[in-house]
Amino acid sequence: MNEQQTIEKLNWIKVCTMAKEYSRQLKNPEIQSLSFDERFGLLVDSEWTARQNKRLANLVRKAGMKYNCAIEEFVFTPERSVNKQTIMQLSSCAWIRDNLNVLITGATGSGKTFLGCALGNTACRNGFKVLFKRVPRLLTDIAIAKGDGSYNRLMRELKNIKLLILDDWGLNVFDHAEGRDLLEVIEDRTQVNSTVILSQLSIDDWHGLFTDPIVGDAVLDRLVHGSYQIKLESKESMRGFNFQRA
């Protein structure tokens, strides 16, 4: 079997990066000094890296996050009053493995969405499925699903997402139906998967968002218990920073 046939067969079995690496090795005389195991290791490493990168890209794309950013890009300033050790601890994703929640509050432009997306990207890098949703859009999706018969499928999908990031929590008061819908989502995920909430309102004000106070009690009990709570302070809006869109 000649080299070209080997390359064609590698492409046919869909290890295309390995085929490219093999072709590169054929053109590099210095490679010939390596042992078979060393050359084969280079082939496998190239294919493994390419597949890992593709998987990460797919996870990030499906997550639908507003920003493509990293924890390392988060700006720590004294006025933000953010504990750097806490953020670095969250970057380990141990809280996701433990099915805990993160509640991030702060004024408009304080960097809530950026930090939420940074946590989401870190989760993707660790192989977790992530979904970013604005709460108004989520509630609309649920209402539509109830009408077209896809409600049960949507709820299963939301339950099985390892990290659900909900932005714009508290832009509007939740009526009875919306409150119950949110309770169903949060209840399904409690002690099973993790949720990040991003809100302009202080956690103390969240109960007043629910028209039905009993539902409000149930939702907050499930979200707040054992959660990480981060309040972002910022005298200067962070919207002027050049954050890359996902």
Score class of each variant (00 low, 15 high):
residue 88 M to D: 14
residue 24 R to Q: 12
residue 171 L to Q: 11
residue 160 N to R: 12
residue 58 N to W: 10
residue 91 S to C: 06
residue 103 L to R: 11
residue 56 L to Q: 12
residue 122 T to F: 04
residue 42 L to S: 05
residue 93 C to N: 10
residue 224 V to Q: 12
residue 176 H to D: 13
residue 111 G to L: 06
residue 167 D to W: 05
residue 246 A to Q: 13
residue 168 D to T: 07
residue 134 R to P: 01
residue 150 S to K: 11
residue 153 R to N: 10
residue 1 M to V: 09
residue 216 G to R: 06
residue 98 D to L: 13
residue 72 E to R: 14
residue 194 S to Q: 06
residue 43 L to W: 02
residue 90 L to W: 08
residue 11 N to P: 00
residue 234 S to E: 04
residue 76 F to E: 07
residue 185 V to N: 01
residue 61 R to L: 12
residue 133 K to T: 01
residue 154 L to C: 02
residue 44 V to S: 00
residue 75 V to S: 13
residue 176 H to W: 10
residue 38 E to L: 05
residue 40 F to H: 02
residue 65 M to A: 14
residue 192 V to E: 11
residue 113 T to Y: 02
residue 199 S to M: 04
residue 76 F to W: 09
residue 57 A to L: 09
residue 235 K to N: 15
residue 93 C to E: 01
residue 216 G to A: 09
residue 175 D to M: 04
residue 22 Y to V: 03
residue 48 W to H: 14
residue 5 Q to H: 10
residue 96 I to F: 04
residue 85 Q to M: 10
residue 145 A to V: 00
residue 182 L to R: 03
residue 179 G to C: 08
residue 145 A to H: 04
residue 190 T to N: 13
residue 223 L to N: 06
residue 148 D to C: 05
residue 154 L to H: 04
residue 25 Q to R: 03
residue 206 W to G: 01
residue 90 L to M: 07
residue 47 E to V: 01
residue 65 M to Y: 08
residue 156 R to C: 09
residue 16 C to S: 15
residue 153 R to P: 00
residue 54 K to Y: 10
residue 187 E to I: 02
residue 187 E to V: 05
residue 226 G to C: 06
residue 158 L to F: 03
residue 92 S to M: 12
residue 7 I to N: 01
residue 171 L to N: 10
residue 55 R to D: 13
residue 215 V to Q: 05
residue 243 F to I: 11
residue 165 I to S: 02
residue 186 I to W: 02
residue 154 L to S: 01
residue 217 D to L: 06
residue 178 E to Y: 11
residue 29 P to H: 02
residue 140 T to D: 14
residue 129 K to V: 09
residue 36 F to Q: 02
residue 93 C to F: 03
residue 237 S to A: 05
residue 178 E to H: 11
residue 73 E to F: 03
residue 109 G to H: 00
residue 246 A to W: 01
residue 11 N to R: 12
residue 175 D to A: 03
residue 56 L to M: 06
residue 164 L to E: 01
residue 68 N to D: 07
residue 193 N to R: 15
residue 192 V to H: 12
residue 205 D to F: 02
residue 5 Q to L: 12
residue 55 R to E: 14
residue 214 I to Q: 15
residue 240 G to T: 07
residue 190 T to L: 06
residue 23 S to D: 08
residue 190 T to M: 08
residue 190 T to E: 06
residue 86 T to H: 08
residue 225 H to N: 11
residue 50 A to D: 13
residue 9 K to D: 09
residue 111 G to C: 03
residue 78 P to R: 05
residue 193 N to A: 15
residue 84 K to D: 08
residue 102 V to I: 10
residue 207 H to V: 04
residue 214 I to G: 08
residue 32 Q to F: 06
residue 29 P to N: 09
residue 155 M to W: 06
residue 12 W to H: 13
residue 102 V to N: 02
residue 121 N to S: 11
residue 234 S to K: 04
residue 160 N to Y: 14
residue 244 Q to I: 13
residue 211 T to H: 13
residue 66 K to G: 01
residue 153 R to F: 11
residue 75 V to I: 14
residue 234 S to I: 08
residue 38 E to T: 00
residue 108 T to K: 11
residue 183 L to F: 15
residue 95 W to L: 13
residue 189 R to G: 04
residue 148 D to W: 10
residue 200 Q to V: 05
residue 199 S to T: 08
residue 59 L to C: 05
residue 163 L to S: 09
residue 240 G to D: 08
residue 100 L to A: 15
residue 188 D to M: 12
residue 58 N to K: 15
residue 240 G to N: 10
residue 26 L to K: 06
residue 241 F to C: 00
residue 29 P to W: 03
residue 143 A to Q: 11
residue 127 G to F: 01
